[in-house]
């Protein structure tokens, strides 16, 4: 399991990095699809990522083309989502949802994190 965790994290480590142009999509529907298609299971309901399961996907997702490529033909642990089960249109909606995810407050503005002793 520990090896699996490393693999998942590194395979997707740079996923949420660079906003880019994407086909038009419906973010509201994308949120529903993110739940219905089970993306939330590994990446969290807010796409924040899950420890040992999947990296953060938003806000600021990587380019749509890279997302699409990975979803269809993942090189890490993620199961493939082929066009047969998630259409390009649905993927565009999901991507719109990822783009709509709001940036959280900075760590220094969250006392429970900024005051965390170390």
């Amino acid at each position: 399991m520990r090896g699996l965790i490393f693999t998942i994290l590194t395979s997707w480590a740079l996923f949420a990095q660079t906003p880019t142009s994407a086909p038009p999509g419906n973010a509201q529907n994308g949120r529903k699809l993110f739940e219905n298609y089970g993306c939330y299971q590994c990446h969290g309901r807010e796409a924040q990522g899950g420890l040992g399961t999947g990296p953060r996907l938003g806000p600021k997702p990587i380019a749509f083309a890279a997302v699409q490529r990975y979803v269809r033909q993942p090189t890490g642990q993620m199961p493939p989502y082929t066009a047969k089960v998630v259409s390009d249109k649905d993927l565009a909606d999901i991507y719109a949802f990822l783009q709509s995810v709001k940036q959280p407050p900075a760590v220094k503005q969250i006392p429970l994190l900024s005051n965390s002793p170390q």
């Binding site: 990522g49 900075a106 760590v107 994190l113």
Partner: peptide, 27 residues
């Protein structure tokens, strides 16, 4: 550590509650 804290901040105010937020609140 700084990267880890930044990770913890995502979905900070979400409901259902993020597991990072829960751990931080208990701590």
């Amino acid at each position: 550590r700084e990267r880890m804290l930044a990770e913890a901040s995502y979905a900070w105010d979400a409901s259902p509650i993020s597991t990072a937020r829960m751990a931080a609140e208990i701590w």
